[in-house]
């Protein structure tokens, strides 16, 4: 929990901007904290799916952060977990029903992974670590930042997997089939793991050496 201490210090002294930067970049939920990778792997075989999943997560994260924050003074400490789960599940159900009503094909493609946002550690983690201690506006910002940080990485992985796996982006041919042989492996499971591994490694390089490592 050494990391928890650090981020807490950053958050307590921080205002909106620090919150945003923290969530989307320096403490990116996916690439740095490695939370919520199940869906990051499962839905990123196409760019479109990744984008929809990103939007879903932003929506759920903002909604649940807001509600948890509004209720934070009225929630008894002992049952806060179950309260958080109930709130998160509510927003996930809203999004799922929306997809079913208007985008049935997308809903079919994402399968169980929309429902699995409930157990996505990012949403739960933000509710627990941030929204419980902070006022609603700041919590919304935190929700947006973390959601966006997650969505961006998802889009990056989705982009490369679709490009290398099928030679297309959102159905349009980008790498001509006359010289590029689509690498089927990228759209299958192993490609997902390897792509995420490389994204995390790139993030590690960009972030520079970890200051805590030398201690």
């Amino acid at each position: 929990m050494a990391d928890g201490c650090n981020s807490c210090k950053g958050l307590c002294g921080g205002k909106g901007l620090t919150t945003m930067k923290e969530g989307a970049w320096t403490n990116n939920p996916l690439a740095i904290q490695v939370l919520g990778i199940c869906s990051a792997l499962a839905v990123t075989n196409k760019l479109m799916n990744s984008l929809v999943m990103g939007v879903a997560l932003i929506f759920v994260c903002v909604g649940s952060n807001l509600l948890v924050s509004l209720l934070r003074k009225h929630t008894p400490h002992r049952i806060r977990m179950i309260a958080e789960v109930a709130i998160i599940a509510t927003f996930v159900i809203l999004f799922d029903q929306f997809l079913r009503a208007f985008y049935w094909d997308m809903s079919k493609q994402l399968g169980p992974y929309v429902g699995l946002i409930i157990t996505n550690c990012i949403v739960m983690g933000r509710a627990e670590a941030f929204a419980l201690q902070n006022p609603p506006i700041l919590s919304i910002l935190d929700g947006i930042a973390n959601g966006v940080g997650y969505a961006v990485i998802l889009a990056i992985i989705g982009f490369f997997r679709e490009l290398l796996g099928t030679g297309q982006i959102m159905g349009y041919e980008v790498l001509s089939s006359s010289w590029y042989t689509p690498n089927q492996l990228m759209v299958l499971a192993p490609g997902a793991f390897i792509a995420l591994g490389f994204v995390i490694a790139v993030f590690n390089v960009l972030k520079g050496p970890d200051p805590e490592e030398n201690k």
């Binding site: 997902a192 591994g197 995390i200």
Partner: peptide, 12 residues
């Protein structure tokens, strides 16, 4: 690659 990144690739 140390830590999680290599773990992901091994999983792959």
């Amino acid at each position: 690659f140390k830590g999680v990144a290599i773990a992901m690739i091994v999983t792959g």
